[in-house]
Amino acid sequence: MKASAFRKFWHYFKVFFVIKKLGFTGRASYRLNFLLLIFAVSFQMILSVIFVRTVFSFVKEIAGWSYFESLLVLASYMIVEGAVWMLFGQMGAIKDLIRRGGLDSLLIKPVDAQLLVSAWRGDLEDVSRVFSGLAVLIYAISNLNLPLEFILFNSVFYFLFILNAVAIAYSFALFLQTMSFWLIKGHSLTMIQDSILSVSKFPTDIFFNKIVRFVFTFAVPIAFISTVPAKIFSEGFNFIFLLESFAVAGLFFWLSRKFWLFALRKYQSVGG
């Protein structure tokens, strides 16, 4: 039983990898365009740093967060957002496949349709978001004067938090993009997704209204995307946060999966 589950997982991993490889090759085929995209994505990240720098050139802290601590939040956001764009293209393939009737051909393939739509689009240039995020993270950590053993110990848990954050962002993207089954165009869904995710650029402690903070922690759990991972370096490891992070990621993945399957049952096809 265990061996068969592992074989299935390995098979899915290989399918995901092959689709990604084809997608990345296609993405890089227009070289100048690809280089400009890398520039644009990196510059966008620099703009976020400029924004934070500008704000902190006038104030010493915001909601208890110093400049370098806020950079930890921003870096976590960059890494998570970059990973979701690079690996899953923010699930933007769903709306295109539905509109153009391409989803039908995926549904008849002997692989889970969710895996196929997840792998269908991936923007290789967004790897520069991840690298920019890592650079900002290292810069922030090195300026916080933390002991080396503290950094090494917490880096392992930071990685786990980031994995959960990617799972949350992925589930959120899947949930929103699945609404394309009921919308004609669905382009604005990506905008909503980007806007909500972009709120996680800032520490959720800025939401001084308790209800708003609760919403952004559990209902739309952006706190677990960047603020909670950043806290591991600003406040140290917290086991409760780790448990909550796994629970929220698991719950959101399960809910988005259920919603995707529900939408598939209602799907009437365009031209297939």
């Binding site: 382009h187 604005s188 800025i206």
Partner: peptide, 29 residues
């Protein structure tokens, strides 16, 4: 025709303004 798109577009912009509202309010202190 695409009014839902227009409204969701509006919603996303309001959300960005909402987060900036909280950020700047906290920054001013």
């Amino acid at each position: 025709i695409y009014r839902i798109d227009t409204l969701t577009f509006l919603f996303s912009e309001i959300l960005i303004f909402f987060s900036l509202f909280y950020l700047w309010s906290s920054a001013y202190g």
